[in-house]
């Protein structure tokens, strides 16, 4: 089949960008979206033009590297699908597609369809972990975890950090990403000691990274390739406010020996 692509081209963060039109004949319906872009890039290189830069790695929907907007929807808006797992059979012959990078202040553009998502790493650095040094763990079965809690934690932990939630949110909010991590760890007994601290620190970090606020519109949930529920955002809100009210100043005294 034949498609017309409008792709955002921008050579660097400070360069001007624009949509560029490409005709794509001979698209096979079993191709993935990225394979279709591979074909485009090969043809551009042969013509002596610069290929389109886009991020990708595992191409099986789990590493979270890939992602851009297709016709105004993150990853194309198909349920539980990243662009690398989106196959061309979902498109119609002759269709015109608009391909744009994630847009958010917190995700500065690097080149073409590639953006810098290191803000997510910094949110994790603020508290998205359980402080357990190597070697200090009790037996894996020492603390039983109700299956339903383990399952809910797993639902939240499925996040691949692709940034679709931010991209599709009308406010470029990172609430779903942050909430997924807080919920994952706070639902487990191992996460309890740092539960409130974690919520406070991660929310503060999220704020400092220039993400917008959640207005409960559910766009994130709809385009999340892992189908992570906004129920997690409610959990985040709850733990954050509990934490704000129950927080105490840290005790300064440290044991000296």
């Amino acid at each position: 089949m034949k498609l017309t692509l409008n792709v955002w081209r921008q050579s660097g963060p400070n360069a001007p960008g624009k949509m560029v039109r490409y005709d794509m004949p001979g698209v096979n319906e079993d191709m993935s979206f990225l394979e279709m872009l591979d074909v485009l890039n090969e043809s551009l290189i042969v013509k002596g033009e610069e290929p389109v830069t886009f991020e990708h790695d595992c191409r099986e929907g789990i590493c979270g590297s890939c992602g851009f907007m297709i016709n105004g929807k993150a990853h194309g808006g198909f349920p539980k699908t990243t662009v690398c797992q989106l196959h061309m059979r979902h498109f119609k012959d002759g269709e015109e597609l608009f391909i744009e990078p994630w847009r958010a202040s917190a995700f500065p553009l690097v080149k073409d369809l590639m953006v810098d998502r290191s803000a997510f790493d910094r949110i994790i650095q603020a508290g998205g972990y359980i402080s357990v040094p190597t070697g200090s763990a009790p037996d894996g079965n020492a603390i039983p975890i109700p299956k339903s809690n383990a399952d809910r934690a797993m639902d939240a932990a499925a996040c691949i950090g692709c940034g679709a939630c931010v991209a599709s949110c009308p406010n470029a909010s990172a609430s779903l990403f942050t909430a997924a991590k807080v919920a994952h760890l706070n639902l487990l007994p191992q996460g309890q000691p740092e539960k409130f601290d974690r919520a406070l620190r991660m929310v503060t970090a999220m704020n400092e990274e220039l993400f917008g606020s959640c207005t409960n519109m559910q766009e994130c949930e709809a385009t999340c390739p892992k189908g992570i529920s906004i129920e997690n955002i409610a959990i985040l809100n709850r733990h954050f406010v509990e934490a704000s009210f129950s927080e105490r100043p840290a005790t300064a005294e440290v044991g000296a020996g």
Partner: peptide, 13 residues
């Protein structure tokens, strides 16, 4: 949080 908007944006849910 999003100074530059999308050329196309389609709402979903």
């Amino acid at each position: 949080a999003r100074p530059q908007g999308y050329v196309r944006k389609t709402p979903t849910l």
